[in-house]
């Protein structure tokens, strides 16, 4: 009999275990973990695919420079009669061409020489530290994040064929995942915020209730819980929260990256609205000081800011939607009463 009872209990237990598992994967922690894990996987993948592509570019630019120098030498030798005007004209043309080449190289992904080492020209230094490659782990992380959030700064972009194909696939799978994350986290944040808000307003609460009874002229005993459901956070508060988050982020980034506050706020807005021009990207100012760790930190900080901020904005939209729906409903009820 105990076996039978055990058997009978087994199915519900398996069922509930299964349900718990599914619920967990789609729960807040599970989705967070999934998104972060997905981004980390993407970071490794892109790092693997793109890292080795930088070195030929550096060599190419170096070669270009040497060619230009040779050309200048030939100009010098040709204009041996030392006509200053002529020399300037020819040299200017050569340097102009060199400028075009550099601009084209930059549009192909060249990103400046890492750490100038002057007086090393003759050696043709080939050893470039792996650390100094643009596709560091954190760089890959930020790139993956900007793909699945559809920000797309474009300061790093894949140059290889497999990198591009991978980006397409990665985005197609990643974007629904991120939407899931947004709706999930937005939901829980909205609920938490609403709860806090209702607690904060508890002191005002009884007053509102009494007033409503007076207006109607008859006593309506509404259960407290139902009332709590009806609490809506005012739109102005949501807007203030969003503006505050962007402005706060602006102050932080201004401090961190040495931008002006306007630039930093502009960066925050452009990022959080998922426009992502990529003209201002964290890590640039710090890179000039060539502090490798600082770049990493600024990337991590930026990623965190973005992940949190987008959830916060999803929350605000969630709350605002609720508020608008509630307002419309109230309006409808009033109209109904009037008729």
């Amino acid at each position: 009999m105990s076996d039978l009872e055990y058997e009978q209990n087994l199915w519900p237990r398996i069922k509930s275990a299964f349900r718990v598992l599914v619920a967990f994967t789609f729960s807040h922690v599970g989705v967070c973990g999934l998104v972060v894990g997905y981004i980390i996987c993407g970071a490794f993948l892109f790092q693997m695919m793109e890292s080795h592509e930088v070195e030929p570019m550096l060599k190419e630019v170096r070669q270009l420079r040497e060619e230009t120098a040779e050309k200048l030498l030939s100009i010098v030798l040709k204009s041996n009669t030392l006509e200053e005007e002529e020399f300037f004209r020819l040299a200017n043309v050569a340097i102009q061409n060199y400028t075009y080449e550099i601009v084209n190289a930059i549009s192909d992904g060249y990103d400046g020489e890492p750490k100038p080492k002057p007086l090393n020209w003759t050696k043709k230094a080939d050893s470039i530290d792996r650390k100094e490659m643009p596709w560091s782990f954190t760089g890959g992380f930020l790139y993956s994040l900007t793909v699945i959030t559809t920000i797309g700064y474009g300061n790093y972009a894949p140059k290889t064929a497999q990198g591009k194909a991978m980006t397409i696939l990665y985005g197609i799978i990643g974007m629904p995942l991120f939407l899931l994350y947004l709706s999930n986290i937005g939901d829980i944040l909205a609920r938490g915020f609403k709860w806090t808000f209702s607690r904060c307003c508890q002191c005002n609460w009884t007053f509102i209730k009494r007033r409503r009874i007076d207006e109607n002229g008859e006593v309506i005993e509404e259960p407290a819980q139902e009332e709590e459901e009806q609490i809506t956070v005012p739109i102005s508060l949501c807007l203030t929260l969003m503006v505050g988050y962007i402005w706060g982020g602006g102050l932080l980034f201004a401090e961190w990256e040495k931008w002006s506050v306007l630039d930093a706020s502009y960066f925050c807005f452009i990022s959080l609205s998922t426009i992502g021009f990529g003209d201002l990207v964290p890590g640039e100012a710090v890179a000039a000081e060539s502090l490798e760790d600082a770049i990493q930190y600024s990337f991590v900080f930026c990623s965190l800011y973005l992940l949190l901020g987008m959830a916060l904005i999803a929350m605000c939209f969630n709350l605002m939607q609720e508020e608008v729906i509630a307002k419309v409903r109230v309006c409808g009820r009033r109209l109904g009463c009037a008729r």
Partner: peptide
């Protein structure tokens, strides 16, 4: 790559 990144609103811009 351009079409997909544009229509997905990523817009890397390379």
């Amino acid at each position: 790559y351009f079409c997909v990144t544009s229509l997905c609103k990523i817009g890397l811009g390379d």
